[in-house]
Each structure stands twice: as structure tokens, then as C-alpha cells.
């Protein structure tokens, strides 16, 4: 009798252990499949864009990348004007945001009085929290008119007749245009650069800085010759991350770029970017090739941002490994 009870007890225990083992592997499987969902989204994204772009790829070939034609009526499309706008607005944004972002990081780590560091840091990060459509509506209604009436006429007056600069800074003051879009992008990506830079600055061993100060270096010399070279990879990685954001940004740009499918030398002229073209024209696009051309532009944009973001990831990862050891 006792033996039977014991073996029953053992059997039910073994069953319990088996069940808990099964539950364990189910949970493991569930989490692993959720991780696979992330990869599946990525692959699905690429496949669906390529499939959607096929009609356009077959019809226009590589010429799509080098043509600035945009004629929905005759169904002739080229992405060059949009690619140009995307690259130039991002370039302007980087030219402004990188030095300013590094400056803010230096201010926050070296100069700012301690009690003010947190509030000012939070305020700068707030710029990253503001949705891009807010930048867009502000740029369109507040910034562009003010810019058109004050800065632009002055710049055009001063530089509009200087040979060499005439082409880039001349023309009519529209308010909206390539430069305005680049400037607003630079404000949007500023917090990304300053946040990453500040974090990397804080990983610089204090001994290095103290040694440089001990040799009689000024604060600036310590930052420029010791801290920045040490933090170079991180700063470049952060800047690339910000560049990835700038390239793909849609709403802030769409409001203020002017949507003109041509390449003009003047920075104050209206233009367009890949994302702005898609946002403006997608719902109104009729015909297979029009839609497909817009999807192909999305594919090009994804490809460009993928390369930039992948470089940023690899640089920041290598940094993490170094910090980990």
C-alpha cells in the first residue's frame, strides 16, 4: 500500500517537473519568436518596398537615379531632385548642428555651474521630444515669414552680387526653401548630437584630463587635444545617428521646403526631399508608375539611412565594447 502511494506520488511529481519544463520551453520559444518578429518586420519592409518598386525599376532602370524629370502626366519620373534636396538639407543641418551640439556638450560638462546642469540638459533634450509636426507648423507659420522679412533680404543684399556667392545666396526671398528646411532639421537633431557627445565625454578618464591640466593646458586645449581625440569614435557615431534622423525626417521638412521638383543653386530657393515628395504626392498619385516611382524613392531613402545608421551602430558598439573591458 505504502509503496503504491509513494510511486504515485513520485509519478505525479515527475509529471509536474515535466510540465514545468514544457512551460519553460514554451516561454523561451515565445520570447525567441518575438525577437524573430523584429527581424521579420525588417525583412518584410525591404521585400515589400522592392516588390512595390519593381514596375518603376523595370521601366526607368538606373536612369531613375540620374534624371530630375518629374512629369506625372507623361509618366516620366526621376529621383535626382529629391535625392539632391535630401542630401543638401541634411548637409546644412549637420554643418550647423555638429559644432553647436559639441559646443553644448562642452558647456554642459565643463562650464555650466553644477546646479544648472540638469535643468539645461533636460531643456535641450526636450527639443528631441517635440514631435516633428510641431517643428513643421512652427516653421511654416512663425519662422519662415520672419526669416523672409529679416534675414533673407539682408543676406541677398550683401552677398547677392558677390561673384561666386551670387548663385548660392542670390535670388528672391521666399522664406521657405532648402536653407530653411536645413536650419529646422539642425534644431531637431541638435539634442541627439549633444546627448551622445556628453555621454562620451563623461567616459573620458579624469586622469587624462587632470594630467593635461597639470601640464598647464587651458580648458579649451584639454577639450580639443585630449577629450575630443579620446571621444572621437563616439562623437562621430552620434553625429551619424543624427544624420540618419535628418535624412529620413518628413513632417518638419514637408512644411517648409516648398515642393519644387527642380535643382536650383540658390540655397533660398524652394526644393523637395525624398520624404517630402512621398508625403505630398502619395495619396494623390494615380497610375502604376507614379505610385511605384514614389515607392522606389522610399526604397532609396531606406537604403541611404540604413547605410548611415549601420555605420553609426558599428562605431557606437565598438565604443561600448571598449568601455566594457
Amino acid at each position: 500500500m505504502a509503496d503504491v502511494a509513494l510511486s504515485e506520488d513520485l509519478a505525479s511529481r515527475a509529471e509536474k517537473v515535466r510540465r514545468s519544463g514544457r512551460r519553460d520551453s514554451t516561454f523561451h520559444g515565445l520570447t525567441a519568436s518575438a525577437a524573430i518578429v523584429v527581424v521579420a518586420i525588417f525583412i518584410g519592409l525591404i521585400v515589400s518596398l522592392v516588390l512595390g518598386a519593381l514596375p518603376s525599376i523595370n521601366r526607368f532602370g538606373w536612369g531613375f537615379l540620374t534624371s530630375d524629370a518629374w512629369d506625372p502626366v507623361q509618366e516620366r519620373f526621376g529621383a535626382l531632385a529629391s535625392i539632391y534636396g535630401t542630401l543638401v538639407t541634411s548637409l546644412i543641418a549637420m554643418l550647423i548642428a555638429v559644432p553647436v551640439g559639441i559646443g553644448i556638450a562642452i558647456f554642459l560638462t565643463e562650464i555650466c555651474p553644477r546646479p544648472l546642469r540638469r535643468p539645461i540638459g533636460i531643456a535641450i533634450e526636450l527639443l528631441a521630444g517635440i514631435p516633428s509636426i510641431i517643428y513643421g507648423i512652427w516653421g511654416l507659420f512663425t519662422f519662415a515669414p520672419a526669416f523672409q522679412q529679416t534675414v533673407e533680404p539682408w543676406v541677398i543684399d550683401v552677398f547677392g552680387n558677390v561673384p561666386g556667392l551670387k548663385d548660392f545666396l542670390g535670388g528672391a526671398p521666399y522664406g521657405i526653401g532648402i536653407f530653411t528646411a536645413g536650419l529646422i532639421l539642425s534644431i531637431m537633431i541638435l539634442p541627439f548630437i549633444s546627448a551622445v557627445t556628453r555621454d562620451v565625454f563623461e567616459t573620458v578618464p579624469p586622469m587624462l584630463k587632470e594630467a593635461a591640466y597639470g601640464l598647464g593646458c587651458t580648458t579649451w586645449e584639454v577639450m580639443w587635444r585630449v577629450v575630443l581625440p579620446f571621444a572621437r569614435t563616439g562623437v562621430v557615431g552620434g553625429a551619424m545617428l543624427a544624420l540618419g534622423r535628418a535624412l529620413g525626417e518628413t513632417m518638419a521638412v514637408t512644411f517648409v521646403i516648398g515642393n519644387a521638383h527642380n535643382i536650383q543653386k540658390s540655397l533660398f530657393a524652394p526644393g523637395t526631399t525624398i520624404s517630402a515628395t512621398i508625403a505630398n504626392e502619395f495619396t494623390e498619385a494615380v497610375g502604376q508608375y507614379y505610385l511605384s516611382a514614389l515607392i522606389e524613392m522610399g526604397l532609396i531613402l531606406f537604403f541611404i539611412t540604413f547605410v548611415v545608421l549601420a555605420c553609426a551602430q558599428l562605431m557606437l558598439r565598438s565604443l561600448e565594447r571598449r568601455a566594457g573591458t
Partner: peptide, 15 residues
Amino acid sequence: NDILLSAPSIVIGLF
């Protein structure tokens, strides 16, 4: 995942 985190949201719309 980190690529998707900063991928252009308009491309996600297209997808």
C-alpha cells in the same frame, strides 16, 4: 532593432 528605431517613419508607412 536599432536600425528600425531610427528608420524613417514614412518608409514604415509605405511598408
